[in-house]
Amino acid sequence: MRIGVITFPGSLDDVDATRAVRLAGAEPVALWHAEHDLKGVDAVVLPGGFSYGDYLRAGAIAARAPLVQDVVDRARQGMPVLGICNGFQVLCESGLLPGALTRNAHLHFRNRDQALRIERADTAWTTSYAAGQRIVVPVKNGEGRYVAADADLDRLEGEGRVAVRYVEGNPNGSSRDIAGVTSADGRVVGLMPHPEHAVEDLTGPSTDGLGFFTSVLEAVVGA
């Protein structure tokens, strides 16, 4: 099982994402945003950071990078894709996921351990959890407020597209406490919190984040 981790100019969490992939038991494969080469990977992680300095809008320029266009094409054929923080912003900007992420309601960068509820335990990235399970992983963002038109939010809720929700406090004013969403087929997931920072007791507030990376092993084997 080979899982690609894309590095953009300004990526910060590609090293942690790579480590999480390895700890989950898969082989991490470094991918470079400017190349049209997915190196035969079975799934892709877009890590956190500040690609292209968040110029224009967070994730906007990265979403037009050559490799991301390849990721979009493969994702539409069912390849699992996980976007974390800046990676989530890239996936929304690419059109793979609905909605948008914009400036936090309180205008502050928020960095803390965050409780989440897994709403969907049947996506490619969440089968290691139980629906309704509470997990704690770090959250750290300045433009993490999930927004969409009310009618679109109603539709997403109706279709069960909210994958992860903030509980015990909303860190950024996200609509309806949405922390992460999934594609209609459950193969693409994006979330603002950082499961890759919660995979070892030594460095994380928990090991709750590892489940995202173990889930995809089943998803690819089962496909």
């Binding site: 400036r103 936090n104 205008l107 927004v147 004013g173």
Partner: peptide, 14 residues
């Protein structure tokens, strides 16, 4: 500009 229904905290701060 942000759509009218999207809140604009930067504008609010100004």
């Amino acid at each position: 500009v942000l759509k009218p229904e999207i809140s604009d905290p930067q504008g609010q701060a100004v």
